[in-house]
Each structure stands twice: as C-alpha cells, then as structure tokens.
Computed example of a mutant assay.
Amino acid sequence: MSAPENESAAFTEPPPEPVAAPAPVAAPELVAAPAPAAAPEPAADPAPRRLPRAVGIVLATAGLLAVTAASAAVTVAVGKPDGHPAAAPAPRATATAAASTGASATPSATPVPVPTVVPTTPAPASTVKGTVSGGKHEGDLRYFLLPIPAGGESYGPADGMPMTRDDVAEIFGKPDDIDTILNRLGYRDGAVRTYRTADGKAQVTVTLLHFGSTDMASRFVQGYTVKSAEPIDIDGDPGAHGFRQKPKHEAYTGSMTGVSSQGDVQYTVDVEVKGTPDAALLSDLMKRQREWLASGG
C-alpha cells in the first residue's frame, strides 16, 4: 500500500528526541526491552540473531515518522559460527622384521593401509537472484545483502534469511502501529544476514527493508537516532547516520550502527567488536552496501 502523493510534505525533519504527538491522535513512544547482557556462541545454522538494538516508533498527527533506536550494552563473545573438528592424523605404515644371529630372517611386513581420497565438494552456488533499475529493486531481496568477505562465516544460511512482517515487528519492539507505519511506507519485504569476519574480530549484521519508493525508504531513515550512543560520520555514504556505543571497559564489546537508503531499500549495518569500534570499519561497510544496492553486483 503506497502513501498518498502529497504525503511527503507532511514528513518533516524530526527533533533530536522524538516526543509524543498531541491529542487527539497521540502515539506514545514504544521502546522494546534491552537486549540481554551476553549472547552465547551460536550453534551451527541457528535462527538469525536479533539485532543489538531495540527500536521505538512514533507516528505524529501530521504524519511525521521518527525512528529511535535504543542501543543496549551488549557483550558478545565473537566465536566461530560452525565448529570444525580437527583432522585425524594420517595412518602410519608399520613393518616388523625378525633377526637372528648367524642366519637371515625374512621380514614380515604389515599391509600399509591406503587412505581413501574423498573429493572436495564445492559449496553449492547461490540461486538467489535480483535486479535493480532506476533505484527499483526486484527479485529476492537477499541477493542485495552485502556479500560476505573472503574467509568470513555466516551465522545461519549463507544466503541470509527473508523477513516476515512479524520479524520486522520483532526488531522494532512490536509497537501496536507497526503495520500502519509499514503500510504507509509501502513495505514489501525484508532480509537479514549476520556473519563473522575472517579474523574473528567483528560480527556484522546487515538488514534490508524494501519499501514502495525511493522517497518512502528515505523517510524511514529520517529522525533515526540511537539512544546513549554518540553520532559518528559515515564517509562515502551521503545521507547516512552513524552511531557508536563505546564499552565501559575495553575488554567488553562495543557496537556501531549505520542507517541509510539506496533507491527503494533502507539498509542498516550493525557491527560488534571487542573494545571501542573504529568508525572507519562502519564507513567501509556502509559504502560497499550502498554500491551493491546501486549496481546489483
């Protein structure tokens, strides 16, 4: 369902802190409970991790959409998504020989086991496809998730996970008016993927939400703030908002969130690392995600 043509005029830049709309159509801010203090190391192929944030949405009487993310202090042990058992040692060839004084003996050799060569089966090629033209994205939205870098390992399916409306509502704390908001912005579908970088130092979650138009995706980004986090610049991604949550101790996990849009898709990149996160890492991820959405690979 698309918003009316003249609706964009009603969407204005929100104040730094969203406030409840005046009567008679007041919409109280809804903020989800904070994330748990620690997330266990995921087992193989789990359901996609919940993002390290909870979001409250306020829809004012004038049609103003403000999205506020409440970031919880999260300590995450960035572990290996899938356990790989150590390889068994190769069998050794053994032989026994009998020797006697003054006479030669015929050695008796134990048969040497020949290891079976198991051909390596390449990972199946992804069948997820998508196209983009003039900022309009078609096909499977998972195709437009930022590709996992070399050596990175996915939590859950390598192609990522599609998101139902209930999944989206869960991310935003299940506010009562979430369906109304999604309908106003012509929401179509969503996709999410979390992966661990090759060096094991960072965990990255990319979330895509597909809206009815470029303007509607852009509106979703407007007024987006993360509570208790400092704003940071995102280089190479015009119009993006970045936020950083420093840990209380460098031994704990810090987090960053970047939000922006490209065409009719809004994207959010969440990064968790040990210690104070480097804004350059988020800038690089946001820039590459924007380019991937613009070109479709």
Rank of each mutant, 00 (worst) to 15 (best):
V58I: 15
L146P: 01
V226H: 10
S71W: 11
K287V: 01
V25L: 14
T194E: 04
V118F: 07
L51F: 03
V117E: 12
S218H: 08
M256I: 02
L282D: 06
A97V: 15
V114T: 13
A72S: 05
D284T: 14
T101F: 12
S260E: 00
L141C: 09
E5F: 10
S295L: 10
G200R: 03
Q245A: 06
V117F: 15
K248M: 10
P14T: 05
A123D: 11
L209Q: 11
V204W: 05
S261Y: 00
H210I: 07
A70F: 13
G83A: 14
D166F: 10
V78A: 06
V67R: 12
Y252Q: 11
T101I: 11
S8I: 09
S8Q: 07
G130I: 08
T197P: 05
A99W: 10
E29Q: 14
I234M: 00
E272I: 02
A95E: 11
G200K: 06
P147C: 04
V55T: 13
T131F: 04
G130H: 10
D284P: 01
A97S: 15
Y252N: 12
S228M: 07
T116K: 15
T120Q: 05
A103N: 10
S260Y: 03
E170D: 15
R165C: 15
A90G: 11
L145P: 01
L281M: 15
T180W: 10
A109T: 15
G190A: 04
V265S: 08
F172A: 12
P4D: 08
G223A: 03
V206N: 04
P34C: 02
D270C: 00
V206E: 02
A158F: 10
D176F: 11
K227E: 12
P48R: 07
E153P: 06
D167W: 08
P16Q: 13
R92S: 09
G242I: 00
P40H: 12
G263C: 02
G130C: 09
A27T: 13
K248L: 11
T120G: 04
V78G: 03
A23E: 14
M161H: 09
R49C: 02
A169C: 11
A44E: 12
D179K: 03
D237T: 14
G79L: 12
R184T: 14
K274N: 09
R219E: 13
G275Y: 04
G254F: 03
T214G: 07
T225A: 15
R142M: 00
P107N: 05
G223P: 07
A47M: 10
K248Q: 11
G242S: 01
P162R: 05
A217Y: 01
K248P: 06
G63I: 11
G236Q: 03
G135I: 07
A86I: 13
G186K: 02
A33T: 08
T68Y: 12
L281W: 06
A103T: 14
G130F: 05
K248D: 14
T75S: 13
K227R: 15
T121C: 02
G151C: 13
P22E: 05
E272N: 08
P18F: 06
P4Y: 06
G63L: 11
I232H: 05
